[in-house]
Amino acid sequence: MKKAALWLALGAVAFLAALWAAPQAEGLWSALFPEVSRPAYVQESWFVLLGSHLALSLGAALLAAMLGIPAGIAATRSSGRALRPVVDAAFTLAQSVPPVAVIALALPLLGFGAAPTLLALVLYGALPLLRATVTGIESVPAQITEAARGLGLSPWQRLTRVELPLARPVLLAGLRVAVTLSVATTAVGAVAGARCLGTPIIIGLTNANPSYVLQGALFTAWLALLLDRALSLLAGPQSSP
C-alpha cells in the first residue's frame, strides 16, 4: 500500500517533468520525425493544457456521477423497478453514440468550446456509473436487507447504512472506469475547440505534424494511466473485507 503510493507519486513527478521537458526536447522529436520542421509543441504550455484537460474530464465525471448514481439508486428501489428498463435503455443509448458524434450534433446548439465536449463526456460516463450502482446494490445479499427491514431501518437508513456501504467496492470500481474513460476521451474535445491534451493532436493532424500527434497522445494516455492507478489505490483498501 505504502509502496504503491510511493510509486504513484514517482510516476506523477515523472509525468510533470516530462511535460516540462517536452518543449525543450527539440532534439528528441526531430530525431523521431526528421522530416518535420518544428517538431516541439510550443504554442501553449503543456501545464495549461493539462489543467483544462483535468477540469473538463473530472468535471464531466462528477456530473456523470451526479446523474448515474442517483439513477442507479432509483432503479433499485421497489418503486423504481418499473422505470428500470427505461433508465437502462436511455443510458445505453447515451453510451452507444460515440462522443465525436455527440460533439458534432451538439455543435450547432452549444457552439464551439468546452460545452459540447462536456455534454458528450457526461453522456458517455453516466452509464458505467449507473451499471456499477445497480450491480453494487443488487449484490447485497437479500438476507441482509431483509434483516435491516425487520430491525426497523427506514428505507433511507437501509440505503445509507447498509446498501451503499456494502455496494461501495463495486461503486468505486465503476467510478474508476468512468474517470479513466473520461480522461482518455476528453482529448476528442479538441475537435470542438475545447482546450485539452488533445489540442496538439488535432493541430498535428491538420498540419501534417506527426510529432504533435505523438506528444498529445503520449501525455493523454499517461495521464489516464496515472489516474487509474490513483483511483485503484483509493478503492483498494475498502474492497477487502
Binding site: P141, A147, G152, L153, V162
Partner: peptide
Amino acid sequence: DPQILRRGIGYVIQSVGLFPH
C-alpha cells in the same frame, strides 16, 4: 408505523443477516 413497530419486536431469521461491514 412499520419502522416503530419493528423496532419494538425482536426478529431473528435463519440466515441471520448480520451486517458484514
